[in-house]
Amino acid sequence: MIIEQILKSKGRSVMTARHNDSIHEIASRLSHRKIGAIVIVGDNGKVDGIISERDIIRLVAEHGAQALAMPASEGMTRNVVSCSSASTIDEIMEMMTNGRFRHLPVIEDGALVGIISIGDVVKHHTAEVELEVTAMRGYLATG
Rank of each mutant, 00 (worst) to 15 (best):
residue 129 V to A: 10
residue 26 I to Q: 05
residue 136 M to K: 10
residue 39 V to P: 03
residue 65 A to S: 12
residue 77 T to Y: 07
residue 55 D to V: 02
residue 44 N to W: 05
residue 120 D to R: 05
residue 42 G to K: 10
residue 99 G to K: 14
residue 69 A to D: 15
residue 7 L to G: 00
residue 24 H to F: 07
residue 92 I to A: 14
residue 75 G to L: 12
residue 54 R to C: 06
residue 28 S to P: 03
residue 129 V to T: 09
residue 65 A to F: 07
residue 19 H to S: 10
residue 12 R to F: 00
residue 123 K to D: 14
residue 111 A to L: 12
residue 136 M to N: 08
residue 81 V to Q: 11
residue 53 E to I: 07
residue 82 S to M: 11
residue 53 E to K: 15
residue 29 R to W: 08
residue 105 P to D: 08
residue 62 E to W: 03
residue 121 V to A: 02
residue 80 V to L: 09
residue 143 G to W: 10
residue 24 H to W: 10
residue 4 E to Y: 06
residue 51 I to A: 07
residue 39 V to F: 10
residue 62 E to P: 01
residue 5 Q to R: 12
residue 143 G to M: 15
residue 104 L to N: 02
residue 31 S to D: 11
residue 113 V to H: 04
residue 23 I to E: 01
residue 123 K to R: 15
residue 47 V to R: 08
residue 132 E to K: 15
residue 21 D to F: 07
residue 38 I to W: 06
residue 6 I to W: 01
residue 34 K to R: 15
residue 99 G to S: 13
residue 45 G to F: 13
residue 36 G to C: 05
residue 38 I to E: 04
residue 142 T to M: 10
residue 74 E to C: 10
residue 16 T to L: 11
residue 15 M to E: 13
residue 80 V to T: 06
residue 66 Q to N: 15
residue 72 A to Y: 11
residue 130 E to N: 13
residue 112 L to Y: 09
residue 112 L to W: 10
residue 137 R to P: 00
residue 131 L to F: 10
residue 27 A to P: 06
residue 82 S to N: 12
residue 4 E to D: 13
residue 133 V to D: 04
residue 103 H to D: 02
residue 141 A to E: 15
residue 90 D to S: 13
residue 9 S to N: 14
residue 103 H to M: 11
residue 7 L to D: 00
residue 62 E to R: 15
residue 97 T to P: 03
residue 18 R to A: 11
residue 117 S to C: 05
residue 35 I to W: 09
residue 50 I to P: 10
residue 14 V to W: 08
residue 136 M to D: 07
residue 112 L to I: 06
residue 97 T to R: 15
residue 141 A to C: 04
residue 9 S to T: 07
residue 11 G to S: 07
